[in-house]
């Protein structure tokens, strides 16, 4: 298969104006990915499926990843020349900025016809609260049908163009998205028979305050 960079260049030539970035993967697996803009994602997916050199006809795995907002501390060093003519001083400035969070959907594509892969596609939402709509790739690969429903259920990404977008694992009246990092699970640890670590700490909140020890 072509490298991810070659595919990106071909995509940019074929779809001028589309957002296609390479996300490199530092792990030994070497599975680099393509970050697509949401606007042209479905056309690009269609192209990847039908292109005779790629023929990525199998969408093997669809999953979501939650990237919450996080505070990044950046240290910038500036060299300030000493007006008295001495050696220049290095002044460190720390700046904090809030990196916006997003929900990411990852697609792993393989070709059964040409026996290559994977090509990893990533789509990102604008934020984690109100801009959570992404184009559904179910019209391109039927395999996405249930998996996108699962991403909708557990992460809260709304797929535009999905034929049947309902909750799949949790019940219909459920309101949270449990795979998000900030999900707070219901507190039903009233009793923990085998004390260990975190579970015991949760259970202890339900224990009555210990009676004062009787002095003999």
């Amino acid at each position: 298969m072509e490298t991810v960079e070659q595919i990106r260049d071909r995509l940019l030539a074929r779809f001028p104006g589309a957002t296609v970035e390479v996300r490199s993967n530092p792990s030994p697996s070497g599975q680099h990915s393509l970050l697509l803009g949401a606007a042209t994602a479905r056309e690009i997916a269609q192209f990847l499926r039908d292109d005779p050199a790629l023929r990525l006809d199998q969408c093997s795995n669809v999953t979501g990843v939650d990237w919450p907002e996080k505070e990044v501390v950046e240290t910038t060093k500036t060299t300030v020349p000493d007006p008295a003519g001495g050696p220049a001083k290095v002044v460190e400035q720390k700046s904090r900025r809030l990196e916006p969070g997003c929900l990411e959907v990852v697609y792993h594509l393989y070709s059964i016809a040409l026996r290559h892969g994977p090509l990893v596609l990533r789509l990102r939402t604008g934020n984690r609260t109100d801009q959570v709509t992404l184009p559904s790739l179910t019209p391109v690969w039927r395999a996405c049908e249930f998996q996108e429903r699962e991403v909708f259920d557990l992460f809260g990404v709304r797929f535009e163009g999905h034929p049947d977008l309902r909750r799949i694992l949790m019940w219909d009246g459920f309101q949270d998205h449990p795979m998000r990092r900030d999900y707070v699970e219901p507190d039903d640890y009233e009793w923990e028979p085998t004390p260990h670590g975190a579970v015991l700490a949760k259970a202890k909140r339900h224990y009555p305050a210990p009676a004062p020890a009787a002095k003999p």
């Binding site: 459920f174 309101q175 219901p186 039903d188 009793w191």
Partner: peptide, 23 residues
């Protein structure tokens, strides 16, 4: 019943009460 976050109620108090912790 299925609630918004959990089952409602979360237990049946006639058959189950949280036991007192063993100290």
């Amino acid at each position: 019943e299925f609630g918004a976050h959990d089952l409602v109620p979360t237990q049946n108090p006639t058959v189950w009460q949280p036991p007192q912790p063993i100290v």
